Simulated scan of single mutants.
Amino acid sequence: MTDETGKSRGFGFVSYEEPEAAKKAVDNLNGMELASGKVLYAGRAQKKAERQAELKDKFEKIKMERINRYQGVNLYVKNLDDVVDDERLRKEFSQSGTITSVRVMSEDGRSKGFGFVCFSSPEEATKAVTEMNGRTIVSKPLAQRKEDRRAHLPSQYMQRMTTTRRQCTVSTMPQTQCGFFVPRQMPKVRASPRW
């Protein structure tokens, strides 16, 4: 197929009179490497819905394969301090066993506060969870239980409020107070008719 300028669009169609001939062509041509180095794809023409269903099944199988492969060995680690990077996370968890991969998730170079540590066996991953749960790295405890975190949040909130109050003393200038604009008196606005 070519576009309106005459350039190849990279695909084409061939019709056969006999289904057996079409099947033979697909079997012989699919996956063949061309002189240009590209690999040829040959397949039966499909409707869009049929093609989407086939691709969905294919990707679902890949996803399930990946889940089964990493089941019990890939740990989700949350509540990471902003300064924790891949190497620091690897160093902290290496005591528990053989690590196959470590990844601290980040966006624009800044940590998102969570990551993944993958061990070579489920036993090592279980050991890591037992040893590392609640352990403090830099300034934050890792993966606290929800009840522990909820119990700790009110005191953390009060500590932040106290710090903020100390930093935000009422200044001599009435226009600003802790970075917020505070007008001395609201000007009177005369209502104008809407017509």
Rank of each mutant, 00 (worst) to 15 (best):
M1E: 13
T2K: 10
E4A: 12
G6R: 03
K7N: 04
S8L: 10
Y16T: 01
E18D: 15
K24N: 07
V26M: 13
V26K: 03
D27I: 07
L29D: 02
L29G: 04
L29P: 02
L34G: 10
K38A: 11
V39T: 11
L40K: 08
A45N: 03
Q46S: 02
Q46G: 00
R51G: 06
Q52M: 12
E54S: 13
E54Y: 01
K56P: 06
K56H: 11
K61S: 11
K61L: 13
K63A: 04
K63L: 06
K63T: 02
I67F: 13
Y70W: 06
Y76S: 13
K78S: 15
D81V: 00
D82L: 01
V83T: 13
V84F: 05
D86W: 08
E87D: 14
L89R: 07
F93S: 06
T98P: 03
I99C: 01
S101R: 08
V104A: 00
V104N: 04
D108L: 10
G109F: 11
S111N: 04
K112N: 02
C118V: 04
S120R: 07
S121V: 07
P122R: 15
A125W: 02
A125R: 05
A125I: 08
K127A: 00
V129H: 04
E131S: 07
M132C: 09
N133R: 15
N133A: 14
T136F: 04
K140I: 04
L142E: 05
A143P: 00
A143G: 14
L153F: 13
M158C: 02
M158W: 02
M158F: 08
Q159N: 11
R160L: 13
T164F: 15
R165V: 14
R165T: 07
R165Y: 12
R166E: 12
S171N: 08
T176S: 13
Q177I: 01
C178F: 09
G179T: 11
F180T: 10
F181W: 10
V182I: 15
P183Y: 03
Q185L: 10
P187E: 14
V189P: 05
R190H: 08
R194F: 12
R194P: 07
